[in-house]
Structure formats: structure tokens, C-alpha cells
């Protein structure tokens, strides 16, 4: 399935870009993310707990950043295995545009694929859940940044 959307963030493009590359920010914003640890400049390992319909499962996986074009765009992709619950993988093409010096427009195009039990049981819920999760991530992200601009002591939270 494919999803797209946009988020207007009250922060300069450089700050948004930094946050997009900061594992701590990502961990705070990815819905259900329990851990996110950097293993190299562009790779991280993650654990995310998701609930789709009747299934709740923890996914262990890799997150990778590629096609880096600072501070304008990158591709963030992830792949997670949820044991008997199945697996999920997806990627998001994220682009930043400076609308004003303090306002950045973030646009994203996400494609995702699920398999295993979550695909069997949640087929009618997957599209809406994925859409919700993607929107939630980017809105969390926007909110987080806006907050850190207003309250800089939260920056490394």
C-alpha cells in the first residue's frame, strides 16, 4: 500500500534535518518504539510494538537511511520481524522544503508491506492502521520539533 502526506513544522530546515537523523528523536516519534540504537551513521536497530486488529506484536528490525541529500531529502526504510505475528517492511521518501526561514514543509511518500498473521487477520485493518501510523509519526515529529524550538532543554530528550 502507498500513502502520502505532509506536515508543516515551525522550525528551520537545518533543525528539521538534524532531527530526522537523530535516533533519539526518531525513537520518541515512531509510534510504539521501545528502542532505537545507532549501529552506524546510517543504520539503526529498533524494537517497535504494534497492534493491528486482534494482534499485538513486538517487531525487531533494522532501520536504514539512504539517498541522503542534506538538508533536503532522504529515504528511511525499515524491516521488522514479529515472530509468529509476521513481518512488516516499509520505506518513506521524505523531502523538506523551506517555506519561510522558520517554517519547513515536510512531505512524505510511504510504501509498506506486511506478511504473516498480521496480513491474514488484519487485512481489512492494515491500510487504515498503516495510514494512521504514518500520519502519527510525522505529526509526532512536527510536534516534537516545535516543542524543542520553544523549549530547547527538551532537545536531547
Amino acid at each position: 500500500m502507498d500513502m502520502n502526506g505532509e506536515e508543516r513544522i515551525n522550525a528551520p530546515i537545518e533543525a528539521v534535518w538534524r532531527a530526522l537523523n537523530d535516533p533519539q528523536v526518531l525513537r520518541a516519534c515512531i509510534p510504539g518504539c521501545e528502542s532505537l540504537d545507532k549501529t552506524s551513521d546510517t543504520q539503526m536497530t529498533a524494537r517497535v510494538v504494534l497492534r493491528i486488529g486482534p494482534i499485538k506484536a513486538g517487531f525487531d528490525g533494522m532501520v536504514e537511511l539512504s539517498e541522503l541529500n542534506p538538508p533536503n531529502s532522504y529515504v528511511i526504510s525499515g524491516e521488522g520481524k514479529g515472530g509468529i505475528a509476521g513481518f512488516a517492511k516499509g520505506q518513506a521518501n521524505v523531502s523538506l522544503t523551506e517555506e519561510e526561514p522558520e517554517v519547513t514543509l515536510l512531505t512524505y511518500v510511504v510504501s509498506a508491506e506486511v506478511g504473516g498473521k498480521i496480513a491474514q487477520l488484519g487485512s481489512r485493518l492494515i491500510d487504515s492502521t498503516a495510514r494512521k501510523l504514518a500520519a502519527q509519526f510525522f505529526s509526532n515529529f512536527g510536534e516534537h520539533l516545535t516543542k524543542t524550538i520553544q523549549e530547547p532543554h527538551l532537545a536531547s530528550a
Binding site: 506478511g115 496480513a119 487477520l121 487485512s123 481489512r124
Partner: peptide, 11 residues
């Protein structure tokens, strides 16, 4: 993708 989408009595 080869997922069974009617694997429970819900579907």
C-alpha cells in the same frame, strides 16, 4: 504477496 486474507471466521 501470497498472504491468506480470509484466514479467520471474520473474513
Amino acid at each position: 504477496n501470497g498472504n491468506v486474507t480470509t484466514g479467520s471466521l471474520m473474513d
